[in-house]
Simulated scan of single mutants.
Amino acid sequence: MRNSRHRKRAAVALATAALTGFATLTACDASGGDATAPNGPSAQDRAAPEPAPVWDTGPRSLAAVGDSITRGFDACSVLSDCPEASWATGSDDGVRSLAQRLLGKQRAATHSWNHAKTGARMADLPEQMTRAAAHEPELVTVMAGANDACRPSVDRMTSVADFRADFQESLRTLRREAPKAQVYVMSVPDLKRLWSTGRTNQLGKQVWKLGICASMLADADSMNRAATDRRASVQARVVAYNKVLKDVCAKDRRCRYDDGAVFDFRFDGDQLSHWDWFHPSKEGQSRLAEMAFRGVTASRSQG
């Protein structure tokens, strides 16, 4: 009798142990333990990817890099910089720069910086990015490329491959120094449009003879085959540069391109400097600031 009860207790214990072991194994599988589910990846493998950063439409500091347009060249006086009229960081109330529109006039005076340089090409941008990143800005504006197309001759224009490599290096430089900075990239202006508008002014054409953007503006009145082909080559290069800006920017999660807004803008005589009929006047600078503000504050990229 005792042996019979002993055998029953042993059988119950064995069954209980088996059930406990099965439950433990099942729980381990269900929670993504060491065992891999036969029909798919473990819970860890199915973890959601890190979400892309959300574009901040209200950055609180701004650094600008680029060329003479961002320096306000010829906006105030002949053949000289006028940074107070810069579309990006200027203090001129008539322009209402991007910095003033985003930060307010008082904060813009202490939290915006202009590292653009007249005559700069894309190859100069990495060094400018280093200087801009030192401020740890929340936003960096880029407007460069016109001088890569505006050369003494067509064959001296920056190649598309070099332009791409220099822009990629510029973004890498910024990411090393200021990885969380947002970047807003303005397209290269339509240089052929500027030629067609400015050539109607005799004074402007005289200034062009000093060598301003000779690849496009030389022999401004000539419509022979050579001149037409030369201008078409410059125009095609600008279009290619803008494609590079768009493509490279699209691969950086914190970069936004203006989707050709500057290139597509139909500048008229009032928006061109009356000192050279090429660079933006104060009114032109204001229009650039307006376009940039719309792009930066849009809920999502236009591109």
Rank of each mutant, 00 (worst) to 15 (best):
M143C: 09
H115G: 01
D81K: 00
D92K: 05
T141W: 09
S91N: 08
T110I: 12
E84D: 13
D124L: 08
A120F: 06
S91G: 10
H111S: 12
P137E: 12
E127S: 10
P126H: 06
E136V: 13
W113H: 12
T141V: 15
A88R: 02
R121G: 14
A134M: 15
G90L: 07
E138Y: 02
W113N: 05
A134V: 13
S77P: 04
T130Q: 15
A108Q: 04
A120T: 09
S77H: 13
S97M: 04
L125F: 01
V142S: 06
E127L: 14
A144F: 14
R101S: 01
G119E: 10
V95W: 00
L79M: 15
M122P: 07
E136P: 07
L103H: 02
H135K: 12
N114G: 06
R101E: 07
A120Y: 08
M143I: 11
A85T: 14
R131M: 12
T141M: 12
M129I: 11
A132V: 03
G90S: 07
D124F: 02
L125E: 07
E84H: 05
P126R: 12
T89V: 05
M129Q: 13
S86L: 10
D92H: 11
T130A: 15
S112C: 13
S80I: 10
K117D: 10
V142N: 04
S80D: 14
P126G: 11
M143L: 14
D93N: 00
A108K: 00
S86H: 03
V142G: 08
G94V: 08
D81S: 04
A88H: 00
W87L: 10
G104F: 07
A116D: 04
T141I: 12
A132C: 10
A109F: 12
L125K: 03
G119W: 07
S112Q: 02
K117V: 11
P137V: 12
G104M: 11
A134H: 15
S86N: 02
D81T: 01
P137D: 14
G119H: 04
R96W: 11
L98E: 02
R131A: 12
S91A: 15
E127F: 05
V140S: 06
V142I: 15
Q106V: 10
M129F: 08
V140A: 04
M143Y: 02
D92V: 06
L98P: 02
L102V: 06
A108L: 10
S86W: 02
Q128S: 07
H135E: 14
R131P: 01
T118L: 06
L98Q: 01
L98G: 02
G90P: 00
G90N: 04
V140T: 13
P83W: 05
R121M: 15
E84Y: 03
N114W: 05
S91K: 11
R101W: 03
P126Q: 08
K105M: 08
S97Y: 00
L98I: 11
A132S: 09
D93P: 00
Q128W: 06
T110E: 13
S97W: 01
Q128M: 13
